[in-house]
Computed example of a mutant assay.
Amino acid sequence: MAFSNPSREEIKRILESAGTIAVVGLSDNPERTSHMVSEAMQAKGYRIVPVNPNAETILGEKSYPSLSDIPFPVDIVNVFRRSELTPPIAEEAAAIGAKVLWLQLGVVSEEAAAIAEQAGLLAIMDRCIKVEDSILLPQGKSRS
């Protein structure tokens, strides 16, 4: 069966319940899309965890060389990497117990989605998390 993204209602629920987003491929260059998207998500109240082996800190947060180096739970793994590099990232996201594998706009991998789903993660691909958050939670996340 072909992959399909969760419904908009499901994506809204995911965003409302998420607190920590590990961003694989987060650049320390403010001109890069990964930096701009992550900065916007951080401003909306999400904790952004950079995954970049070449930086010590990004957006004021400690950067980790890989997902498995993060010493606390992660809700969403947001991926800014080329599509062909995502299957091992999906495996690592599953291994750390993430709830969602989110492949950014333009990133598509049926294999990564299948790996994530077989491990019990929700998979989203070819969608921008910032755009979805802006559309679905324009007032920001509700605080309970």
Score class of each variant (00 low, 15 high):
S68C: 03
A93L: 07
Q118F: 06
L85Q: 15
L59Y: 11
G120I: 11
G97E: 01
P65S: 15
E117R: 15
A90P: 10
D126E: 04
A94C: 02
E110R: 13
P65H: 05
L85P: 03
L105N: 11
Q104I: 13
Q118V: 03
V100L: 05
F72K: 00
L105V: 03
E61K: 13
I70N: 02
W102S: 11
F80D: 06
V79W: 00
V77R: 07
D126T: 05
E84N: 08
A113Q: 02
E91H: 12
A123C: 04
F72M: 03
G106A: 09
K62H: 09
A119H: 10
D126S: 08
D69T: 12
L122S: 14
P88N: 03
L121M: 13
L103M: 15
E84W: 02
D126L: 04
Q104K: 07
I89N: 04
A98S: 10
W102Q: 10
I124C: 08
I115H: 11
N78H: 14
A123N: 11
I76R: 00
D75T: 00
E111S: 07
V107F: 11
S66V: 09
R127E: 14
L103G: 10
M125K: 14
D69G: 04
A114Y: 08
V108I: 15
I124W: 03
Y64H: 02
A112H: 06
E61H: 09
S68E: 15
P65W: 07
A112D: 10
G120K: 13
I96F: 01
L67Y: 07
I124Y: 10
R81D: 06
A116C: 08
P65I: 05
E92G: 12
S83E: 06
L59T: 05
Q104S: 05
R127Y: 07
L67W: 05
A98N: 09
L121Y: 12
E92T: 11
E61M: 12
I70F: 01
R81A: 07
S109T: 03
L121F: 07
A98T: 04
L122Y: 04
E91P: 00
E111C: 01
W102V: 11
A93K: 11
A94H: 10
